[in-house]
Amino acid sequence: MFAIATLALFVVMSLALLRGLIGPSIYDRVLALNSFGTATVLFIAVLGFLSGRPDFMDLAMLYALINFIGTLAVLKFFQFGSLGDTATDDNPEEQQN
């Protein structure tokens, strides 16, 4: 039964990757990235049980953390144009370093 769940998660990852490739807007791509990350977390968890050694849960936990932070970081970057402070944009050439 773990093989069926693994196969289903493979399908979900492929569909999310397809949406990320054909997504018309940037938000579609961010959405596909987030869904792909969630499917990857579940995939790592199921794969541990499939191989009989469920010791990869730390990797899944870490991937969930990175996925959330990455999604919010990309969203903030595309909303404000930068990841740092956005108040001082008098001369944007100086902030290129």
């Binding site: 039964m1 773990f2 069926i4 769940a5 289903a8 998660l9 399908v11 979900v12 492929s14 569909l15 999310a16 397809l18 949406r19 807007s25 938000y27 579609d28 959405l31 596909a32 869904s35 499917a39 579940l42």
Partner: peptide, 24 residues
């Protein structure tokens, strides 16, 4: 596990097939 797989595939198909970003 089977119900979770079914809902995962449903969400993936919805990610492709739904017409609008907010539907997705």
């Amino acid at each position: 596990l089977m119900a979770g797989s079914l809902f995962c595939v449903t969400g993936g198909i919805g990610l492709i097939r739904l017409p609008d970003f907010f539907c997705r």
